[in-house]
């Protein structure tokens, strides 16, 4: 489980908010990141729900056992612009995840825990560049998913 909370600060009073909820289909979920600030923020896609499935950014367990991650793991260099998402003031970004794409689930409840998401304040009009020294961590609440019989 990648949780390299190195450098930066883990701020409780971030003006960003992450919420998680179950989707309508079996083993689907929704992650929403909301910017309540008056200025924009950058989100590093790596190891976040915006990176499905090129890193292990979730811990999914059933019956108290961590499930094997079956997605990809990528080696990366420095974050480039394509690795960043700009979240404007007041904007909400939504990602849908289908756990069946990376985990083999059985028909019992699943606990989904999220790696902290790296975020950084952004000055409007400036070039989008990631600076590890300004990085902070956004936490997303864990989520309990109940099995649904797949109607297909």
């Amino acid at each position: 489980m990648p949780n390299a909370v190195e450098g930066g600060q883990n701020s409780q009073q971030l003006p960003l908010h992450c919420s998680t909820s179950a989707g309508t289909e079996a083993w689907q979920l929704q992650v929403q990141i909301q910017n309540n600030d008056t200025s924009p923020w950058l989100i590093l896609r790596w190891h976040s729900p915006l990176d499905a499935w090129f890193s292990e950014f979730l811990q999914v367990s059933q019956n108290g056992q961590k499930l094997l991650y079956q997605g990809a793991k990528a080696k990366r260099g420095e974050p480039s612009e394509e690795d960043l998402l700009l979240l404007a003031p007041g904007e909400t970004h939504t990602e849908w995840l289908d756990l069946t794409q990376a985990y083999q689930l059985v028909m019992v409840p699943a606990l989904v825990q999220f790696s902290p998401i790296a975020v950084m304040p952004h000055k409007p009009g400036q070039q989008m560049r990631w600076q590890a020294t300004q990085q902070q961590w956004l936490l997303c609440p864990e989520l309990q998913l109940l099995p649904k019989s797949d109607s297909r």
Binding site: F54, Y69, Q70, K73, A74, K75, R76
Partner: peptide, 16 residues
């Protein structure tokens, strides 16, 4: 993609 490479850890020994 801009990455160096990636693999599926459950699928040896293929490197993308």
């Amino acid at each position: 993609k801009s990455y160096f490479a990636y693999v599926y850890p459950t699928q040896p020994y293929k490197v993308y």
